[in-house]
């Protein structure tokens, strides 16, 4: 199995007090943990890449722990999540897809019985590429107030032979959410949707 060679980590946390409307009693937090690692498959086509997903599981969990700590440390406070990957130019979009399983595993392992799919996006790009990571409610994908996205990126990454992996968490709905739809308080089922 390839070793995970980390070049750098980055963590960003936003505390949002208002966006022109009434200030929230408790500010909304949105945060991202990013990791820049060497792409073990850069520069050539490798057929069997699945083993790397297992290597990435504990790594992803450590990233999620890093993010949760930056957001205050309370897993119960996390209401929304998302994940994403940027593959450097000498890699393949499929290398970004390696993040699906470990990224989702990392969130669920940390947040208990989160039921909804962890929304995701990915692309191939150069250093400084920005990625808008979709965010939805952790237990019911259709909760409209929690549909959001969080822009991430690192000026000097990913280099051609690197992978940039991202996890995003939020502590609540959009700061002035008011377009109706399913509310978090109305979540019924156990299907991760409604």
């Amino acid at each position: 199995m390839p070793e995970i060679a980390v070049r750098k980590y980055a963590v960003t946390v936003e505390e949002i007090f208002h966006e022109g409307g009434p200030a929230a009693a408790v500010p909304l937090k949105r945060g991202a943990a990013l990791a820049v690692i060497a792409n073990p498959y850069a520069g050539r086509y490798v057929e069997d890449i699945q083993g790397f997903m297992d290597d990435l599981k504990p790594f992803g969990l450590a990233m999620a722990q890093r993010l949760l700590a930056a957001m205050g440390g309370d897993a119960q406070a996390i209401q929304g999540y998302g994940k994403g990957a940027i593959v450097g130019a000498a890699g393949e979009l499929e290398h970004g897809a390696l993040w699906h399983v470990p990224g989702g595993y990392a969130m669920r392992e940390l947040l208990g019985d989160a039921k909804a799919i962890v929304p995701s996006t990915k692309k191939v790009g150069g250093p400084g590429t920005r990625l808008d990571i979709p965010v939805t409610h952790v237990n019911a994908s259709y909760v409209r107030s929690h549909f959001d996205s969080f822009e991430i990126g690192i000026t000097d990454a990913p280099r051609a032979d690197e992978l940039l992996f991202a996890l995003v968490m939020t502590t609540g709905p959009r700061i002035h959410a008011r377009v109706g739809g399913l509310k978090a308080s109305e979540i019924k089922g156990e299907d991760g949707l409604r």
Partner: peptide, 10 residues
């Protein structure tokens, strides 16, 4: 309106 903190670790 908001406070954003960014940490990078090389």
């Amino acid at each position: 309106r908001k406070i954003v903190t960014v940490l990078d670790e090389t």
